[in-house]
Simulated scan of single mutants.
Amino acid sequence: MNGNLFNRVVLIVLDSVGIGAMPDADRWGDEGADTLGHIAELRGLHVPNLQRLGLGNIRPLRSLGPVNSPEACYGRCALLSNGKDTTTGHWEIAGIILERAFPTYPQGFPPEIIARFIEETGVPGVLGNVPASGTEIIRELGEEHMRTGKPIVYTSADSVFQIAAHEEVIPVDRLYTMCEKARAILRGEHEVGRVIARPFIGAPGNFRRTERRRDFAVPPPRENLLVALAEAGLDVVSVGKIASIYDYAGITQALPSKDNAQGIDQTIAALCEPTRGLIFTNLVDFDMLYGHRRDVEGYARALEYFDARLPEIEAALKDDDLLILAADHGNDPAFRGTDHTREYTPLLVTGRRARRGVDLGTRRSLADIGQTIADNFGLKLKAGESFLADIAE
């Protein structure tokens, strides 16, 4: 289908909002995982706006059934890549299929990696080297870090090497340099998706992470949706951690956000600007604050908060805008462990020029989203099957 049906596409990724285990979930230890299903069953969900769009039509959920005339097109996406992390899911949306998963370190990083990091950065050693919540490990090890000058190194369920340091102990510029050295070390079999600087301030018992976080990502292959749009002269406006996930490749404007509330605010602000192309938002709280911490109640409240603000986003849409709601993987807060979960992701597509109530089925890959956006602008990606013809009015 030829492009330009929609002047602008707004793609919002609800980070980790899965909708049931994929057939290969047992390979990942995730058989039975069901982020939305378990939240709806254990706590219940009041999300009338998502329901009217057709969330319950994708798959009936307890207290969230199908509606007779859904206002959006609806379906679900499988993850074709080998992985279940943020970078893998987002890259696949942009048309990049990974055959090899980014490495994760549930037991911490190997001694040889830590030894080389110490040698090349000149630090007196490191603290931590375990998977941990960033706020918790700073609370636990921050005082010792201030006393010894040793940076706190930790990871998570994602493929990340994180370095936390008090700004008065290790100045931010030096912390960034340390991250650059770590990025150079972490290549080959240990090429993590991101190295992240996590500066903090305050006194023991009252530490606080600052907004000087910086991500040092693996650059994605040049052949991806964002670069294709930018090279065609279109706007690619990122909100939240989108820019860092793609190492700023193809990004024409990056709007920061620290949480879902600010992410929604920034998305609405971007919609008010006279752009043409893509507004790409990641809402991080579902995953960061509630999925990894196995907080069913908090996750449910975050979903209900997004639902309550969804009409604001819809009201900001122009007649020729298209809104796509999706996710990148699962993170079932009722499941064992604290890792992501290998799940299908929901897909809701709406706009004043789009059809309503079309069942888009089970998409083979998240890349179908990127291919559809590319198709709208007369472009083509290597991966994915466009559903633009299915939603065109």
Rank of each mutant, 00 (worst) to 15 (best):
residue 318 K to L: 08
residue 117 F to T: 06
residue 7 N to T: 13
residue 191 E to D: 13
residue 61 L to D: 14
residue 40 A to Q: 07
residue 313 I to K: 04
residue 313 I to E: 04
residue 270 A to G: 03
residue 120 E to Q: 15
residue 274 P to V: 07
residue 392 A to W: 06
residue 24 D to L: 14
residue 281 T to V: 11
residue 9 V to K: 02
residue 265 D to T: 03
residue 97 I to W: 09
residue 361 G to K: 08
residue 96 I to M: 08
residue 258 K to L: 14
residue 352 R to A: 11
residue 338 T to V: 05
residue 26 D to N: 14
residue 7 N to K: 15
residue 219 P to F: 07
residue 379 L to T: 13
residue 391 I to D: 02
residue 142 G to P: 08
residue 318 K to G: 15
residue 57 N to M: 01
residue 106 P to Y: 06
residue 341 T to Y: 01
residue 118 I to T: 14
residue 69 S to M: 03
residue 179 C to S: 08
residue 47 V to L: 02
residue 257 S to I: 04
residue 126 V to M: 01
residue 98 L to M: 14
residue 125 G to W: 00
residue 261 A to E: 15
residue 181 K to A: 10
residue 18 G to F: 01
residue 367 A to Q: 11
residue 135 T to H: 10
residue 265 D to K: 03
residue 202 G to D: 11
residue 346 P to L: 14
residue 19 I to L: 10
residue 12 I to T: 10
residue 116 R to L: 08
residue 161 F to N: 12
residue 186 L to R: 10
residue 270 A to Q: 09
residue 216 F to R: 09
residue 306 F to D: 06
residue 192 V to K: 07
residue 364 R to W: 00
residue 227 V to C: 10
residue 299 Y to P: 00
residue 39 I to S: 00
residue 201 I to L: 13
residue 252 T to R: 10
residue 294 R to W: 03
residue 141 L to F: 03
residue 179 C to N: 05
residue 311 P to T: 11
residue 65 G to R: 13
residue 285 D to E: 05
residue 65 G to W: 04
residue 125 G to S: 00
residue 7 N to A: 13
residue 146 M to S: 02
residue 6 F to C: 07
residue 370 G to Y: 03
residue 20 G to R: 02
residue 58 I to Q: 10
residue 229 L to R: 12
residue 142 G to F: 10
residue 48 P to L: 09
residue 223 E to T: 12
residue 65 G to L: 14
residue 366 L to M: 14
residue 321 D to Y: 07
residue 177 T to I: 00
residue 203 A to T: 14
